[in-house]
Design a protein around this nucleic acid. Structure first.
Length: 418
DNA sequence: TCTGGGGTCCTAGGACCC
DNA sequence: TCTGGGGTCCTAGGACCC
């Protein structure tokens, strides 16, 4: 047990929107999106119409992340909505990460816009934690043009909650002795890992604040909420021993792509085309991660928003596009009940190192040749873009030959265990 | 007017083995 | 004449995160 850890949580304020605003201004745009009611949102015509990030003026109208765009516009008719630019966000995220590396070697990327930094033992370099946090925050603002919140405490959980206390452009501490005053009065839903469902269950137990949760009998919570009850009781009491995992140490557990389709899909032909496009990018990312998978799964969301999945275990681990796709097609055939389809997804899990890929002795499908083909195509695509080589079914450009994903820039993102 | 897309972990229940 | 009990693996579904 490390007793005197100092952990910081760095969180970009309205990340997508801030990054977009900085980019626009650097490109000569006069209006700063951060100063007007604005949001980054998907395209309604393509049925991607939700709010991904909002400005602080937009927040004052009660606009929420995840909300559908037409609802947000009802709250604020003059709301300016700009489309997302994930490539830009990835670049901004990488730039922020590179800057932060100058402050501590122990740095964990937690999501595209959040990081944990272990400041333990670094006071001789940058001063006490509060001074250092201001230094970092102002450095980011000066150098990169956007603001962050920094939370400081003795573990990741408390640092994260500290960072959320008041935004934007702030440094907060949440030391253990500050818990009763700063954390316990907060609504229980503000606690990490207490989502809507858990909140509802806690309300049945008359628990509405983090403090009430902290002072509830642990056994009772465990009985009602199983292991999750134990977890959130610990969190409510500020207990978390997890380490800051630096760099790319964390290993990916799965790779998936899914997409909401512009129209409802009602036939196999169209579904196969979309599934192939998804499989192409999943398999590409799998190979880029030098991995193979042992489990393939598909997901279907119907126009009624019902959702189900189907998966299978492979005899031999693979990363061959055609091999994964063959299983995807089988799974889809078994699972689809014929409803109108709104959304399709492909995911691979149970990953292993590609060195262990073994050709089955009964495999008459020439794995070596297929793999060589995939490798050749990957190289061309990395060099000339995703449309440089594509299958004939995509030649009409009705669908992209590869869907979703962030390519080789993948890194392990959030984990529900800090 | 209609709710994205990327993840992780946990649990229940069935199959199977000894 | 009456089907125990423990362990493991697998799948589907649900909860959570940003």
């Amino acid at each position: 047990m490390s007793k005197n850890r100092i952990i910081m949580h760095i969180d970009t304020n309205s990340a997508f929107l801030s990054w977009q605003a900085v980019y626009d201004i650097q490109s000569g745009e006069k209006t700063d999106l951060r100063e007007i009611p604005s949001a980054v949102g998907g395209n309604q015509a393509d049925r991607h119409g939700i709010i991904l990030a909002k400005s602080i003026p937009a927040k004052k109208y009660g606009i929420q992340t995840g909300e559908v765009i037409w609802q947000a516009k009802q709250k604020c008719p003059e709301l300016v909505i700009v489309p997302p630019n994930y490539y830009l966000y990835m670049k901004c995220s990488n730039t922020l990460y590179d800057l932060m590396k100058g402050y501590s070697p122990v740095l964990q990327r937690f999501s595209i816009d959040e990081m944990f930094l272990d400041y333990t033992g670094l006071e001789p370099h940058f001063g006490d934690p509060i001074t250092a946090a201001h230094l970092i925050k102002d450095h980011i603002h000066r150098e990169l043009g956007f603001t962050v919140n920094i939370g400081i405490s003795i573990n990741k959980l408390l640092a994260k909650i500290a960072g959320d206390l008041k935004k934007p452009d702030m440094v907060h501490t949440l030391w253990p002795e500050e818990i009763p005053k700063k954390m316990w009065p907060l609504p229980v839903g503000d606690l990490f890992m207490v989502g809507r469902q858990t909140q509802k269950k806690l309300l049945d137990l008359n628990i509405t604040t983090i403090g009430e949760l902290a002072n509830t009998d642990r056994k009772l919570l465990q009985m009602k909420l199983k292991s999750h009850g134990n977890l959130i009781w610990c969190y409510a009491n500020g207990l978390d021993e997890s380490a800051v995992h630096s760099g790319y140490f964390l290993q990916m557990k799965g790779i998936g792509n899914s997409t909401t389709i512009r129209f409802d899909v009602t036939d196999y032909r169209t579904a196969y085309k979309i599934l192939l496009s998804l499989t192409e990018s999943v398999a590409f990312r799998l190979r880029a991660a030098k991995s193979c998978c042992r489990v393939v799964s598909i997901e279907i969301r119907t126009s009624e928003l019902n959702y189900y999945t189907h998966q299978c275990r492979l005899h031999n681990a693979t990363n061959i596009t055609n091999e994964i796709y063959r299983n995807v097609v089988l799974l889809f055939g078994e699972a689809w009940k014929g409803e109108k389809i709104r959304h399709l997804g492909v995911r691979v899990t149970d990953l292993c190192c590609d060195e262990y890929m073994q050709a089955s002795i009964f495999d008459e499908t020439n794995a070596d040749k297929k793999q060589a083909l995939d490798t050749a195509i990957d190289i061309i695509r990395e060099k000339y873009g995703n449309t440089a080589v594509m299958r004939a079914v995509f030649a009409d450009y009705e669908f992209a030959p590869m869907t979703g994903g962030s390519g080789a820039e993948d890194y392990p993102v959030m984990s529900s265990i800090l």
